[in-house]
Design a protein around this nucleic acid. Structure first.
Lengths: 150, 150
DNA sequence: TTGTAATCATACTATATCCATAGGTTTTAA
DNA sequence: TTAAAACCTATGGATATAGTATGATTACAA
């Protein structure tokens, strides 16, 4: 019992919050992780691990040492939420069936439900790829049940 | 590393496959779990555990003993995928932030990213609530990137 | 009354992920 | 040269996932 479904982990959520924080302070030079951690109420040590994931892509520019820190490599409008989550979460597929791992499900050819998951994956990707960091800065309003369908 | 995001578990996926199987054989009286397990390639014992979740709602009609088994309580058009997943997965929220557990995030008032997750949750719910078992029987085609937006 | 099948109850094994904490090393700029 | 900060590696508890195994109990129908 209890609830246990399809969750985006702290890796993705904290990454996004960190990048939004960087976007908000993008004119202040390099921003130290310590400052972000304090503002966001996240352990600096944990954030350190998470930023490792981001560093595998060219999302950030970093500087070590005195007055070092992080800044966005590009303008906030150039980052989509989908892009960020793919990097930090390792993919945004809602079911394992859609991953391209070697032990693919052998029933995929006859599976009546696979198309449901493919459609769900598409819907999720379209939504997340349609939002940029700039949109969040501009006080993004969520998609309500009413407004969503035309 | 590796991929670790937001997955719908076997509980939800197998439940859906079981109900589709029942929908396909809805004119054959009660269907024994053994038959479903064989057709779907799922352990009968594991399916037994999963069907317990479905039995908490009025989704199924059951009969014990000789020629007993399960059948859908209503027509396939009356079941949405969203409804089924809510029962078996305990909710379809993509982040813990949206659950109504007591230890709600205290930053929700100022969180710049919460609206993103609310919007994502809405998009997922709209999609899953828009598909019925009958749609799956009618060879549901997935929502492609091109067709989705008008 | 006999077999069939659901129902219930555990318990156990692996494995993986989540969410950190901790300590040490390297680089940089004043 | 020194302090600040990124960077790296390891560890661990808690929880969830995905089953397997074993059996007891209950209800139904021929």
């Amino acid at each position: 019992m209890g609830d246990m479904i399809m969750k985006i982990s702290t890796k993705g959520r904290y990454s996004l919050r960190m990048l939004v924080d960087l976007a908000e302070h993008k004119d202040n030079g390099y921003i130290a992780l310590k400052d972000i951690a304090e503002r966001q109420g996240i352990s600096k040590k944990y954030l350190e691990q998470i930023v490792t994931l981001l560093n595998r892509s060219d999302i950030l520019r970093t500087n070590r040492g005195y007055q070092g820190g992080y800044m966005l490599a590009q303008a906030p409008s150039q980052y989509t939420v989908g892009q960020i989550l793919r990097v930090t979460e390792g993919g945004i597929y809602p079911v394992t069936c859609l991953e391209d791992n070697p032990n693919q499900c052998e029933r995929s050819g006859q599976c009546k439900t696979l198309a449901i998951w493919q459609g769900l994956s598409n819907v999720i990707a379209e939504y997340l790829d349609g939002i940029t960091l700039q949109d969040i800065l501009d006080n993004y309003q969520n998609v309500g049940a009413d407004e969503y369908y035309i």
